[in-house]
Design a protein around this nucleic acid. Structure first.
Lengths: 233, 233
DNA sequence: TACATTTGTTATGTAGGACATAAGTACTAT
DNA sequence: ATAGTACTTATGTCCTACATAACAAATGTA
């Protein structure tokens, strides 16, 4: 018998605690009964009794769902299913000091991918006012020039504004959530590298150029990042 | 005093439970002391005593961190900080039936953005073998043709393969995690719409065409999705 | 009758104790 | 010295009790 088969047959032993099991069962229950936001959940004691566990365990499981924003509770009124904020769960674990290097690298690549793909949304939704504000940000950088900390702040403001211009709130929040990750990665570099295409160049393209030109401009702007990517991962 | 200021001054009243507070305090503590994966945490009772709360509350907070994969516990040995899997937290809340329509729309746009930005990673890492496998998937569709359920499966296989070809595991998992969302959105459409550029066309471009040609091809392939996007969000 | 006040009920939030269990650690006997 | 035993410790689970908030019902007053 090959080792591969063995690995499939016996997975790693994960000793689930009761809270884990109850969390899963609750999820299944909510899905099966197709609960919708606003629907009231059973009482803690009812859950505990019907699952044959203590109220403590149920509360640990519920505490998890509450953290994710899946349930909200009010005294006496009981608990209701709620609409979780999908990004708040991400936010809790997105700490560059904790997540591994390979994941960090993956996230960095995702950011590059997103920025290369932004052009379509951007040209669909950019407004004159937005472009003007973006130009102002780009000009600010030009004026103050040197200072490292300010340079980074401005970099963040510029790219953040671009995300905001897409009109996609989730995307925008996602980007701002990734900032600490990039701040961390950038801090590892000794010398700040400036792309061939500047922020002002990008603004100029946004004003008078086409989608395709913007994509090319963004590619040039990010080129030094792409240059450092490994071919075979 | 303007209403805007008022809104900033007094935010909405959020009555945090002790478990919420302890969770936050623990996070801060881990950050301040710059805990790294593998470092042992204080005992439950120590935490409870030093925070002045019951062990129950501490366990609820720890249960949350355990769910996110931030801490792992073994009997007697105690708890250690662990490397959370950033996507597993997302997975728990990514249910199209629960999240709101606007977020659903945002996610859909993010997917389009990603696919439009994939070209660079793809051309950096695609292998001959990958392209051949992709071609096989595309041909499979051509052969069997009609059937709705199979068409969707094949669509998923094709685009999934493209993500896999980027060599970015996080990106790939992210995409496969979004599939239920798109399955849901697609199920809302009456008539399946086929883009002007087919899967086989895309494969052909991957074989002999340039990055830019691929991007244009992908744009054509997704054009009907872009057509339906709202200008002003 | 209409309204205000009080009382009761209920579900969650918090505290604290008890014990089982697993996994080290120290000790003892051959 | 090694094997086996007893002890210790931290987590996992259960139980009881009570505080608190919010709703419901009952009661009293104009």
């Amino acid at each position: 018998m090959s080792n591969n088969v063995l690995n499939n047959e016996l997975g790693p032993i994960v000793q689930k605690t009761m809270a884990d099991v109850v969390e899963i069962r609750l999820r299944e229950y909510l899905k099966e009964k197709s609960f919708k936001p606003g629907d009231p959940l059973p009482k803690e004691l009812e859950i505990a009794h019907s699952l044959g566990v203590s109220r403590n365990v149920v509360r640990e499981a519920l505490s998890r769902l509450r953290m994710l924003g899946m349930v909200e509770t009010k005294k006496k009124r009981g608990m209701v299913l709620a609409r979780p904020d999908i990004l708040s769960s991400l936010e809790r674990v997105l700490d560059p000091l904790i997540i591994g290097d390979s994941t960090l690298q993956d996230i960095f690549e995702i950011r590059l991918t997103l920025e290369m793909g932004l052009a379509d949304l951007l040209y669909l939704r950019k407004t004159k006012k937005d472009v003007e504000e973006l130009e102002q940000i780009a000009k600010n950088q030009k004026v103050t020039g040197g200072r490292q900390t300010f340079r980074i702040k401005n970099e963040i403001a510029f790219h953040g504004k671009i995300y905001q211009m897409t009109g996609n709130e989730t995307l925008q929040r996602f980007q701002s959530m990734l900032l600490p990750v990039f701040g961390y990665l950038v801090s590892l570099e000794k010398v700040p590298i400036i792309g061939k295409v500047s922020h002002l160049d990008l603004v100029e393209i946004l004003k008078h150029g086409s989608k395709e030109e913007f994509r090319q401009g963004m590619l040039q702007h990010l080129q030094h990042h792409f240059d450092k990517l490994k071919r075979i991962p």
